[in-house]
Design a protein around this nucleic acid. Structure first.
Lengths: 195, 195
DNA sequence: CGCCAATCTGACCGATCGGTCAGGGTCTGA
DNA sequence: TCAGACCCTGACCGATCGGTCAGATTGGCG
């Protein structure tokens, strides 16, 4: 059976997404993916240089959005950074639930691969922003727990529609993060918004 | 080199704990453990029936405490269940940081093994308790995110002493969980406690 | 028709996995 | 002294992994 390249390519990608999300990257063999598509393992490796390239193409959209969020965060501090990080990450997590589930527990090893070299730094900046760049341990701990928890839990919420999951997570994050003890914590400051 | 059985047994267990926590269960080979101990792979399999038995013995203390927590939770509902679940799980997570890190991302597969057959049910009951047995999606989501986040994040806090980590996590959980809208949310009820 | 490029595959490769096994040391107690 | 229990190991096993390669099949085009 010979199909158009884009067709088989896409089928392999979709099958890999399902399998990776279900049993993890290392827990899924090229044979598994090929079986699900209905082709040979060699065909998978005809369309993708290697297993890592398959993963990289799968994660590309999510990584691009993560990169965008990181760009938005540069220069922001305090409560503003917290809010941007919270909304941005929750939205990303909800939209890319499956992609995030792929990395379940394999972050440390997968991040060593060149395609994901900078993700670790981005996630650290994200954590700092969510913690309000505070040096208090409580803030750092809360930020890390929330980030890890949302990443980990999102994969379990495939039955919950986006429009319901997103506000629920956002409410949780806003309630859970320590409000940064900024110079002006409560009253709205027009000065900050303008300058 | 011949050592007392308990000595080598313990060294293998300790090495396995380090390696499993660092690179995961599937990501660690018996060869890796043997190399770290300074013995042959066959020696590892002399002291432990198989790789799974090694993991089971490693996790036994943590599982026992988890089982205790589950027992304490039976019959409790509402805010009381929430509080017991919160304090119990935070304490467990802090004490058994490394053991929990072992399961990082490999929960679904590892839980299929007979030694951990009932953990899944326990963790589900724990989640329900932390959510105050509420059927609101927000409560369920918050409970799952917190449980997953604490499990996932604890392994990263090896540099933070227990006495600092425990209250920080407990504060986070108490702030983050949705207060259950129980029939009697505030005033203590002697009736419930007696019957 | 013949040619060529694209698509796909079976067979194969070296590496590594968990696990088995026969046997070699070493210690101890009768 | 010597039998036997205990501790340990090298060699080996079948299975599976990611990846390679030569060649079969197909479809479009001059």
């Amino acid at each position: 059976m010979v199909r158009a390249v884009s067709e088989t390519h896409g089928e392999i990608l979709a099958a890999a997404a399902r399998r990776f999300a279900g049993t993890g990257y290392r827990g899924t063999s090229l044979q598994d993916i090929a079986r699900e598509v209905g082709c040979s393992k060699a065909t998978v490796l005809y369309h993708f240089a290697n297993k890592e390239a398959l993963l990289a193409e799968l994660m590309a959209p999510a990584i691009a959005v993560l990169q965008d969020l990181d760009d938005q965060l540069t220069g922001l501090t305090g409560a503003v950074a917290q809010e941007v990080a919270a909304t941005g990450f929750v939205d990303l997590a909800v939209r890319f639930r499956r992609e995030i589930a792929v990395l379940r527990g394999e972050f440390p090893e997968l991040l060593c691969q060149p395609a994901f070299a900078h993700i670790q730094q981005i996630s650290e900046r994200l954590r700092d922003a969510l913690g309000g760049h505070s040096d208090r341990p409580g803030a750092r701990i809360a930020a890390l727990v929330l980030l890890a928890g949302i990443s980990e839990a999102c994969g379990e919420f495939i039955d919950i529609p986006d429009d319901e999951l997103r506000p629920a997570l956002l409410t949780l994050v806003r309630r859970a993060i320590e409000p940064v003890d900024a110079p002006l914590p409560q009253q709205p400051t027009t000065k900050d918004k303008d300058s």
